[in-house]
């Protein structure tokens, strides 16, 4: 097995792409407004802290991981040229994304706890903090659970990207374009229909609503939610997606161009 070499290769290539994504983002949300206000002569209204307060920097990471994970075909091409098996590619890719999620998640939380909160005095800096921070009375446990909860969300995004990316890479370029246009439309319409149906009075107080409330962690205490059902759900979904991705990786082929 050449997992070690492949992991090293993928890590180096993808950390560069990740870095480039951050660079582009920083330039767009910090530097561009600065330059604009410089040009328009309204430099006085430019406030770095304001931008920092209002931009979800830590939220970008999940999105970046999604995009990065969806672009797996390029690496497959290089690896199959060099006699690397699909299984090794899969294992190395999962290791690399695992490391990325751990690093990214740590940096995110560190940033939020050490910079964002002291600066803005806003505690609800992510999904866990907005919904579930009152469930635990111990501050340390809250931070730990926040870490696990956020890591699970990132894993979900990453695996979703991998699933979509490797599913699309099974098809020809034309078919990929068709799917990229058709799926969101069909999905959107379906979602609208489902949401419409659920919000319809007839569905209220049915098992669907109860189930949703259970997953979201409603408790008898108002404003306090239990994070464990969501976490378990995310864990199961991740495991299922991992399984699907492994299968899709084993089906990867060089396309006829």
């Amino acid at each position: 097995m050449k997992t070690k070499q492949v992991t090293k290769y993928l890590f180096r290539r993808q950390i560069i792409i990740l870095g480039e994504m951050y660079l582009v983002t920083f330039v767009t949300i910090y530097l561009l407004p600065f330059l604009l206000s410089l040009i328009t002569g309204t430099l006085g209204s430019y406030s770095f802290t304001n931008i920092l307060k209002n931009s979800p920097i830590s939220g970008f990471f999940g999105f970046f991981m999604f995009v990065l994970a969806a672009l797996s075909y390029e690496n497959f091409k290089f690896l199959i040229q060099n006699g690397i098996s699909r299984t090794t590619f899969f294992e190395a890719q999962i290791s690399v994304y695992g490391i990325f999620v751990l690093i990214g998640n740590s940096v995110n939380l560190l940033y939020n706890y050490a910079i964002y909160v002291p600066m803005t005095h806003r505690m609800s800096f992510n999904l866990f903090m907005s919904g579930y921070r009152y469930f635990f009375s111990n501050g340390g446990v809250t931070v730990l659970m926040n870490f696990i909860f956020s890591a699970l969300i990132l894993a979900m995004f990453t695996l979703m990207g991998m699933t979509i990316g490797s599913f699309l890479s099974l098809f020809s370029k034309t078919m990929q374009r068709v799917l990229l246009v058709a799926v969101p439309i069909v999905g959107g319409v379906t979602l609208m229909y489902v949401v419409g149906a659920i919000s319809n009075a007839a569905f209220r107080y049915t098992w669907i609503e109860n189930f949703t409330k259970f997953i979201l962690g409603y408790t008898s205490q108002s404003g306090v939610y239990n994070p464990f059902p969501v976490m378990v759900t995310m864990f199961i979904l991740s495991a299922v997606m991992l399984f699907i991705v492994k299968y899709l990786f084993s089906k990867k082929q060089l396309k006829r161009e």
Partner: peptide, 10 residues
């Protein structure tokens, strides 16, 4: 799916 054997070819 065999690294050892695939690595014998280019």
């Amino acid at each position: 799916d065999n690294d050892a054997k695939l690595g014998l070819m280019f």
